[in-house]
Design a protein around this nucleic acid. Structure first.
Lengths: 256, 256
DNA sequence: CGGTCTCTTGAGCAGAGTCAATGAACGTGG
DNA sequence: CCACGTTCATTGACTCTGCTCAAGAGACCG
């Protein structure tokens, strides 16, 4: 993806791609989405898109970069509750509710498109195919959140981390099909801990044991997956929860 | 609620009530829901509504009883991922996907209404207000799942259990407004553990310490809340995530 | 060159798990 | 009505995964 297309009609392509992976999107509906009025917004240096408690008047599509959704306990512990990639709608819940329950924050730099809530909702209302796909998006979001609960609730630290890497790999690959076996994680070890319900110290130790195991090759925040099948098995990972199984399947790499 | 109304036109009232709590439901749309063709199904003795891997052809509305959604890890550990009360649509995800990712199971005895998926989807498509409300239902489901992730990931066993009790109390009360301060939990301590990512032994110990504390009064599976405000505070519980904040608020009890 | 952030490592601790045994409650068939 | 099996709750003793606290080492940046 080159920078120049981000200002053209094709800027919302990542969203269209995502919707098409989840179901059938008629051409006229796709065109209607592409013609939505939107504001480009560049975010730098881990800026917040939405802060807990703020009111929200726009629906945000992530065009480039990665974002997280998180919430805190009263004791100040932070838990990352979701991960967003280009093409993802990152604040549907907040947009509907009007007030944000959670904070949404990008990593490093990111680019988003913001569409007024009312315009977006009118589109979903007037075009049943779009309404249906957005509903499916939300159903998949919920399925992902449940898988995270399972991950945090019942898997040990090692499996939990591997499972997270698998989800990251699959979603990263869907959003941006470069080399699917090389992951550049934007997370610090503390942030990984916040996503996994672990401390940064323990994340560090688990990462080291993974390197010692040769389960993954790691160099700083870059991780190379050497054996995807074995990784999936060790991670107890089944990507079914990331998909709408009724949607047409797109096969990316034959070894996956 | 008496048994005899379960066979009449008013049987789907719990669903209508739930939708009205989340937004505006025009009368003609409500009538269309009430006129949906549905099959009554009685479930006995912890029967499964949907089993992991099965295909699903009906949308299920829980009319009476309580249901859980759970998934298992490859090591056989079980995690309860969701809780359903009368009025809840309990298998939207499964219905869309066609194949069930999870198992949905009732406690003891329950009664459900089953609507063919195609009929249900047509209703959502043809009536934007209903489509919108169902979307909101799903958004709230996702928000609940995220709160569970936070609960399991970052709260200690005591707070986690209290938080679960709070959610149970509020949702139970919404679905069936009897005495909001008395909860009859249908769960064994093992099932509570499965919902909280704990072992039954530890749940037992935490429950005992709560009784010793006088945080709650407990007699078998019946729990009496003596001080809701204090409980909420200790549980780090804020019910905002259970609601669509744009919807009209219904106040139940003044002390809540 | 000092400051900040992140990663790394060690030592000790504790919350929660495991294993195992006992009791209480309940249903069922004889 | 009793004997038996089953399911749940309870308790103790012991273990261990993952946390806390603390300090040092790189890396980067102004």
């Amino acid at each position: 993806m080159r920078s120049d297309i981000l200002d053209t009609d094709r800027a919302l392509q990542p969203l269209l791609g995502k919707l098409r992976r989840l179901g059938t999107l008629p051409d006229d509906d796709a065109a209607a989405i592409a013609q939505l009025p939107w504001n480009r917004k560049e975010l730098r240096n881990a800026a917040c898109i939405v802060r807990q408690g703020e009111s929200v008047r726009c629906c945000t599509v992530l065009l480039r970069g990665i974002a997280t959704l998180d919430r805190m306990t009263c004791t100040g512990a932070r838990q990352i509750l979701g991960l967003y990639f280009p093409g993802d709608l990152i604040d549907l819940q907040q947009a509907f509710a009007g007030d944000a329950l959670d904070t949404i924050q990008v990593f490093d730099d990111a680019i988003v498109a913001q569409v007024p809530v009312a315009v977006f909702m009118a589109l979903a209302r007037d075009r049943p195919a779009i309404g249906r796909l957005l509903w499916i998006v939300t159903l998949v979001d919920a399925a992902i959140a449940r898988e995270w609960t399972l991950n945090v609730g019942r898997r040990d630290a090692r499996t939990r981390l591997l499972h997270f890497l698998c989800e990251f790999a699959v979603r990263q690959d869907e959003a941006d099909s470069s080399d699917p076996d090389v992951l550049t994680l934007p997370f610090t070890q503390e942030q990984l801990g916040d996503a996994l319900g672990l401390t940064s110290v323990h994340v560090n130790r688990v990462l080291q044991s993974l390197r010692d195991d040769h389960t993954v090759e790691r160099d700083g925040r870059t991780i190379r997956i050497t054996n995807w099948q074995r990784l999936k098995q060790q991670a107890d990972f089944n990507e079914a929860y990331l998909r709408n199984t009724n949607a047409p399947r797109t096969i990316t790499a034959s070894n996956r």
